[in-house]
Design a protein around this nucleic acid. Structure first.
Lengths: 147, 147
DNA sequence: TCAAATATTTTGAATTTCAAAACATATGAT
DNA sequence: ATCATATGTTTTGAAATTCAAAATATTTGA
């Protein structure tokens, strides 16, 4: 199967758009099937808390690319539903430090399992060395966003 | 630079998450810079109308993975702002056919230009034949969502 | 000590979404 | 031809998510 470069570009564009349009819906379905009661939005907040170094409100909001005000409302409901705790930073009492509860860790485990399945699907039939092509392409795309 | 398969998987996962988290924001910035007054949401509605065969409300909603009710509110504002027209299908008067105005085509041209730049960045330094690896990987990912 | 900087929450408004009800038109069985 | 059912769209009412700006709390530096 041959194709010119511009054809390949067009195919890659369409695939990226398709993937982008569906991933949230598919992820949500997967979580629902596993009896997770949270929205994908809420799960992504938990994910950000897990990944960020210092879990202050500002840091988490920056990771999520939302305002701190928006994060406050998200954390309000997660706190109420016992997915996170809130405490003042003793070294700098302006800061509020968010921590995940066991409930959150269970949800994140399920979410990670979905991602692993997804990535396994990507690597299916990929030969040794070819993974580097994929990594380079995605790095190029990610770098494009840094301009 | 060598890495085990599981390392490669982890890198690809992180890159995909990063790309996913930023693409909407970057696209929105790009549109704003080009004096486009619409939200990315509204632009994606126009994009769906452009891509779908028969531009009835149901078809457009299906393409966008939203309910027809949600689409009605989106079309209401786009209609009011003169980005689309509405007409009854003469063959089946239950259907409403949406058409893009010149205003929309101008916006979509700018949006497509962004996507072209983006894809050019992906293909940067990609050798002949390597594009097929990328296409295969993304196809695998897209197919994973069809299960 | 106190003005400015930083961190967070609150407030008020806009956007986007959905499910269910209401409405319009078409189709198929009698 | 008529009417029940199916299909297509809009309306309604409510919830979730977001933002900017104002308010509040704490720290820092002059």
């Amino acid at each position: 199967m041959k194709s010119s470069v511009s054809e390949a570009k067009s195919i890659v564009n369409e695939l990226l758009v398709d993937i982008f349009n569906r991933i949230l819906i598919i992820e949500a379905e997967s979580m629902k099937k596993q009896n997770v009661k949270l929205s994908m939005n809420e799960i992504h907040v938990l994910e950000a808390i897990e990944k960020v170094d210092e879990t202050s409100m500002s840091n988490i909001a920056k990771k999520l690319h939302i305002t701190v005000g928006s994060l406050t409302t998200a954390i309000n409901t997660l706190y109420q539903k016992k997915y996170v705790t809130r405490e003042r930073d003793e070294d700098d009492r302006r800061k509020v430090i968010i921590k995940l509860t066991e409930l959150s860790h269970e949800v994140l485990k399920k979410h990670e399992a979905f991602h692993e399945q997804m990535i396994d699907a990507v690597f299916k039939e990929l030969n040794v060395g070819e993974d580097q092509v994929l990594i380079d392409s995605l790095r190029n795309l990610s770098s494009f966003f840094n301009r």
